[in-house]
Design a binder for these strands. Sequence first.
DNA 1: AGTGAAAGAATCACAAC
DNA 2: GTTGTGATTCTTTCACT
Lengths: 147, 147
Amino acid sequence: MLNNIDQRILEVLLKDSRISLKELAQQVGLSSPSISERLHRLEERGVIRAFSIEIDPQALGYQLQAIVRIRPLPGKLHIVQKLIEETPEFCECDKVTGDDCFIVRLFVRSIEQLDQIIDRIADKAETSTAIVKAQPIKRRPPPFGIA
Amino acid sequence: MLNNIDQRILEVLLKDSRISLKELAQQVGLSSPSISERLHRLEERGVIRAFSIEIDPQALGYQLQAIVRIRPLPGKLHIVQKLIEETPEFCECDKVTGDDCFIVRLFVRSIEQLDQIIDRIADKAETSTAIVKAQPIKRRPPPFGIA
DNA sequence: AGTGAAAGAATCACAAC
DNA sequence: GTTGTGATTCTTTCACT
């Protein structure tokens, strides 16, 4: 799927996407133009979805993080989904199989804010809230070495 | 917490972290040197945790995504956590309050692989697996406009 | 926070393997 | 088909305002 050079490019860019092509080229042992072409190909193929930044919620005052399972009441699915999408504190939302229709990640500045936000969907869905105590894996891409 | 200029810098960089300082400066209406200084301050303050890339798991052949709730059996907590960390297909892991000790995100190439990976922890923990059908919110930072 | 000069990097056309 | 070379253009950075 990906050769060794592409893998190393991805590894370097995951740590620092603003690195210059020149330095990236040196780290993987090729010239800048060839790295440039590989980069564009990785973008075209969709392997690199975006060059972005990671923002630290804590640095913005979000002291609490929760994962909430949401089971909309009959007929309320679309209203609930809309409410989730329009509440910016919900930062991840997965529609899943099984009892829980949505599993969402919520950032809040306080328990009071958590309560407020959950309350707003309380009449449209059943919810189970789990406060995040630690993050053994904060976020990483799936392996691209194999295949 | 953040002034308007910093907010706009973050917005632009979220979409493209490889943008040149010059263009970034034009988009927010300041000169390159002042943008450069603001960038460094945002990094030092920890607001920008990293300049990185988003890799698309689908482009790497991961057709399935699951969210798994994991309740280790008595005495098995640390073994289970280690197993999760060492299995690279687990790409997110939150240790949470409540019955479910861990909530993890799992990328796999097939149902067979999903079964294999879940089986490896089946004798050490109870698990509930929910297949991701859609992602109404793929991932976004919490609001930095307010406060 | 802006200006201008010097250093450095990206990109393009083209050559080589 | 992919990689390297060198010229041109653009960007970053630094001293100074």
